[in-house]
Design a protein around this nucleic acid. Structure first.
Lengths: 110, 110
DNA sequence: GTATAATACCTATAAAATCTAGGTATAAGA
DNA sequence: TCTTATACCTAGATTTTATAGGTATTATAC
């Protein structure tokens, strides 16, 4: 299990990265994340849907309803141009912070 | 500048790491972080002090007032045993999430 | 054929965290 | 003497998040 803050910090970059590769619907994203992370990250629906809605309002992603053969409806999300730019920034920021932490952790403890 | 979420996620591990090496007072921590991060992270007092108080309440750190030669008082913080354990967990969690992101970012974009 | 699990979406509201914008006091330097 | 730097603090408005639900359809197990 991952702490609340770390969860909050990683959610957006993960969603952006996943959707940059392939359009997906919410439920699928959840299972995808569980699988990719090997269980490190277990997202709930109640946590993901509001995030997707917010990101859509911020125009980072856009949705589209699609009907699947079996009659079930799914809301597919894809990245907007803004979303792509945001992803680059998020990556960059994450790496910057990671470098600070790596540096700190590399120092021999006194 | 680093996003709010990333800031929130990195604050605790950074404080724990810094205090694991050396006891410090709040004001000093702020300047230390600015310096170590090369300006990537710019903490404000209004953001740090409440965090320090919360962490002390959680018994991760403990404080001690000291008088310095020049007559100024400083509140020095050091890690507790719990704090040391927490640091190990924080490191571990960060690395886990970092691995997930690295993995995602290493894949060639479709 | 019926009950349960899985799929797939949604949100109101309570609870928690954060940020702003202040405040105090002393010492050093201009 | 005035300003800047040092060094701490917090009330309260705002924002976020988590909980715990809700709906509806399809697939599977009994």
């Amino acid at each position: 299990m991952v702490s609340k803050n770390l969860m909050a910090a990683s959610t957006k970059p993960i969603i952006l990265t996943i959707l940059a590769r392939e359009e997906m619907y919410g439920y699928q994203i959840i299972h995808n994340v569980t699988q990719i992370s090997g269980g490190t990250l277990e997202w709930s629906e109640g946590m993901l849907y509001p995030v997707l809605h917010r990101m859509e309002k911020e125009k980072l992603i856009q949705s589209q309803w699609r009907m699947v053969e079996n009659g079930r409806r799914r809301k597919y999300y894809g990245l907007t141009e803004n979303g792509r730019k945001e992803l680059e920034q998020e990556k960059h920021q994450w790496m910057k912070v990671h470098k600070v932490l790596s540096k700190l952790w590399a120092l021999t403890p006194s």
